[in-house]
Amino acid sequence: MTPSYGSRALRFMKGLMLRNLPLMITCREFEDFLLDYLEGNLPRGQRRIFDLHLAICRECRDYLAAYKETMALGKRAFDDPAAVLPQTVPEDLITAVMEARHPDSEK
């Protein structure tokens, strides 16, 4: 299925506006600084420009929401409750570790 990206003419107008009006950035520029934006590393002025772009760009808004949900999903998928339960401890592991602590005593 080909995704629907909307009208080319509208995107042309939008690109023209984002490239030429003051306080506007393109979606590509938004992409380049997205990580700094998320990590709070942008100076206040630039942050405002980013927020303005988000307010007028449906695509970047949707993209950012899905990007954040992806981060949450990745993180939670790794949360394995089983890992914190007591596990069987191999005795030979304990012995190997003990030998490391006192290399001479268990020879």
Binding site: G15, T26, E29, E59, Y63, R76
Partner: peptide
Amino acid sequence: PDFDENACRLEAPWPKRLSAEDILSQAEQR
């Protein structure tokens, strides 16, 4: 991510978006 020749992002609309919690509520999805 995809962009067109106007540096506009190509992102199909999202009529709905599931949360991480919704998705992981089904065991096999993890």
